[in-house]
Design a protein around this nucleic acid. Structure first.
Length: 720
DNA sequence: CAACTCTGGCTTTTT
DNA sequence: GCCAGAGTTG
């Protein structure tokens, strides 16, 4: 007698969807239909009349997820999306703060600083405070400030026991007052200000508490301390919090995510029902079994084992290259072969641990003429020309926005140099006014004339913007500011010019019933970075970091660079928690593949301009050997993935030695020689390149074949 | 004031 | 190896 909405769900999914109104934790494994459960639950609650749309609060982590959820809900039932509180933590806090800006002590049109803007603001504070930015790197100050805010700690409450932390606290305090003065709010502030608003304003809090009867949270393992505290404030006696997450996919601890929130949630909310979604609808059995085997090496887990009713499928293919370019060539060959087999290019992903790895892969793809798309890097609203245009728009909305003013006072160049800006800054500080006001009352002289022209231009923009439609405002400031002209004359300005035109389009597409669309448009630009820079259009192979791949799936996945130091990354090895997070990253990466998973590594790799020789990643030993297929001829089976022999050392075998350069050795080492290495023991020289400053490949009896730098390896010839 | 050269540092990143 | 920011020169 199941509801039509839930008829096609599996028993666990259905149980989750049809839970009574009570707090619940859904442990949703990769590919287990998490989003489906979440949206179906919402549809079920609404269609069975258990709540009205107004009683719903659904929180996601990214705009993309929020949009997708909104789309799925409105597809299932006709609803006005504007009445729904479905969005990201930041988006929802923004909404609440705009509605209650008076109570929150914020100006009506407060601007939102993105990370770039925040950093610029911090640098400005440090300059006024005369703090040495070598001893106090602005980035670390930003971390300090955001970290405190995420812990709910204001500057006056921040701990300071030594000079160093006292200085940090001082910068924090001054940064806060600067933001308040200028009416701007950073990302962490959106959450904290909203939290404090609800905390101190009991009637408001009670209003929302009784209103939101069902609170649903996606990607709960990614929430930070403040987000969890915010959720707790909003949960009233008659609200039910439905949290969906996967502790095994928690890969954002480095930016404040607390997996521990899942355990805390169970305790704090006396959660009766923990439902595990373990049936995977994405991957073939071998891939799942391999991923399960890897993640089992982690200690701190809530426990979960994915399974599938699908076949075992193909084995996991393993390829070991001698060099990074050889690895890249392998990717290219294999991808070309797959495309010949009819697999769509955008169903193929190349994943890597760090962005630096993409360059050489891109190089090989370009050489082979394979179209690809790189995710990551600058996004639309983060581009230089867009940020400039937005700064002018911000100044139209609020002339006292010093951050924006500093960004464009001399861009395009109009003869207002550092000297002049410093004078303005001093004047403003002494008079306790904004830079704009200081600029308005600038004296006479050559630079003052330039400032005067700037003031006049901004005033003109301000006047013209009145009553003008948003896209026209954008167009107007692009002309009056000289940005159009600047990029027209710039050699490589074509793409930037196209982006500026795209900004006009974005403004035209941005329709709100908001009476002040400009402010809403600017807030949207900060909150939603826009599409990642990438050539869209034709089907292309997808290149991205493992982090960026979370939530996505592909027919074929190439997981590259499986080397110690790279993956797991050196910087994560200091503490065991770091290693566990790296392992979760491995788990996320493997579970992206539906049908085919390749893992590759290279014995040598150019890193930071230096050749690095790293052993195979320990994670390879955690994949059962029975699930692996070695692509390089000559591999001894059971070399990686010694699942039953608990072998902690990185025992691995190298591909057959195929000499690539035959040259007279300048270092006294020749192919066929037997040598001794202080660490790896005795081995035979099988290849070399680059002479005395180059590298030599040695097949060690105990440790397999390795590329070593002749200059460093301290190889001792034993016999010729 | 602006264009140019040089040096250092470097995991992952949404909002 | 590459990029950003600092420092130097015209």
């Amino acid at each position: 007698m199941s509801h039509p909405l839930t008829a096609s769900l599996n028993p666990e999914q259905r149980a989750a969807v049809e839970l009574p109104p009570e707090h619940a934790l859904i442990l949703a494994g990769a590919g287990s239909g998490k989003t489906r459960v979440l949206t179906t639950r919402i549809a079920w609650l609404l269609s069975t009349g258990q709540i009205s749309p107004a009683g719903l609060l659904a929180v996601t982590f990214t705009n993309k997820a929020a949009k997708e959820m909104m789309a799925r809900i409105t597809a299932m039932m006709p609803l006005n999306p504007r009445g729904l509180w479905v969005g990201t933590f930041h988006g929802l806090c923004n909404r609440m703060l705009r509605l209650h800006h008076r109570d929150a002590g914020l100006p009506a049109g407060f601007a939102i600083l993105d990370s770039q803007d925040q950093l610029a603001a911090i640098k400005r504070v440090m300059k006024t405070l005369n703090v040495d930015d070598e001893r106090y790197p602005p980035r670390s100050i930003a971390q300090y400030i955001n970290g405190n805010k995420e812990a709910g700690i204001r500057a006056e409450k921040a701990q300071a026991r030594d000079d160093y932390s006292r200085t940090q606290r001082m910068i924090y305090a001054e940064y806060e007052s600067q933001c308040r003065r200028e009416g701007v709010v950073d990302f962490a502030e959106l959450l904290l200000a909203c939290y404090e608003l609800l905390e101190r304003n009991a009637p408001l809090r009670d209003h929302y508490r009784s209103r939101f009867q069902h609170i649903l949270v996606d990607e709960f393992q990614d929430t930070n301390q403040l987000q969890y505290a915010w959720l707790k404030l909003l949960t009233g006696p008659n609200s039910a919090l439905f949290a969906v997450g996967d502790d095994d996919q928690s890969i954002y601890a480095f930016r404040g995510a607390r997996v521990g929130n899942m355990l805390d949630f169970q305790k704090d909310y006396h959660v009766k029902h923990v439902i595990r979604l373990e049936q995977n609808y994405r991957s073939h059995g071998n891939i799942l079994n391999a991923a399960n085997a890897v993640i089992e090496h982690n200690r701190d887990r809530l426990g979960k084992q994915l399974w599938t009713s699908d076949d075992d499928g193909e084995p996991i293919r393993l390829y070991e290259a001698a060099t990074d370019s050889e690895e890249a060539n392998f990717l290219v060959d294999e991808i070309a072969a797959q495309q010949r087999d009819g697999i769509a290019a955008d169903e193929i992903a190349i994943l890597y641990r760090s962005n630096a790895q993409s360059r050489i892969i891109e190089h090989a793809l370009v050489a082979a003429g394979l179209p690809y798309r790189v995710y990551g890097g600058l996004r639309f609203y983060e581009r230089q020309e867009i940020k400039h245009a937005l700064a002018y728009l911000r100044l139209v909305a609020n002339q006292d926005d010093d951050n924006a003013l500093l960004r464009v006072i001399n861009f395009p160049a109009r003869g207002i140099g550092n000297r002049t800006v410093e004078t303005l800054t001093d004047t403003a500080r002494i008079a306790g006014t904004s830079l704009w006001q200081a600029a308005c009352s600038a004296g006479s002289g050559r630079s003052a004339a330039a400032v005067g022209r700037f003031v006049h231009m901004l005033d003109n923009m301000h006047v013209q913007a009145q009553g003008m439609a948003l896209p026209d405002v954008v167009n107007m400031i692009l002309s009056l500011s000289g940005l159009y002209e600047y990029y027209q004359n710039e050699k490589e300005g074509e793409e930037r010019l196209a982006n500026l035109n795209e900004l006009v389009n974005a403004a035209a597409a941005f329709v709100t019933e908001d009476e002040n669309d400009l402010v809403a448009f600017l807030a949207n630009a900060s909150l939603e970075g826009g599409e990642h820079a990438a050539e869209a259009g034709e089907a292309a192979v997808q290149l991205m970091t493992i982090h960026a791949a979370k939530g996505l799936e592909f027919h074929s996945v190439f997981l590259t660079g499986l080397e110690e130091g790279l993956f797991p990354h050196d910087n994560s090895l200091a503490d065991p928690k770091g290693l566990e997070e790296e392992r979760r990253l491995m788990y996320v990466a493997m579970t992206r593949a539906r049908r085919r998973l390749y893992i590759s590594l290279s014995q040598s790799r150019m890193l930071h301009g230096q050749m690095r020789y790293a052993p195979a990643s320990r994670f390879l030993n955690e994949v059962p050997a029975t699930l692996l297929k070695y692509l390089n001829r000559g591999y001894a089976p059971n070399s990686y993935g010694s699942s039953n022999t608990s072998n902690t050392s990185n025992d691995w075998y190298a591909p057959p030695a195929t000499p690539r350069h035959v040259e007279t050795p300048a270092h006294g080492l020749a192919i066929g020689m037997t040598v001794r290495h202080p660490k790896f023991g005795v081995g035979e020289v099988v290849n070399h390149e680059g002479g005395a400053n180059g590298n030599v490949q040695v097949n060690f009896v105990q440790h397999g074949t390795k590329w070593l730098a002749v200059a460093y390896a301290k190889l001792e010839p034993i016999k010729a």
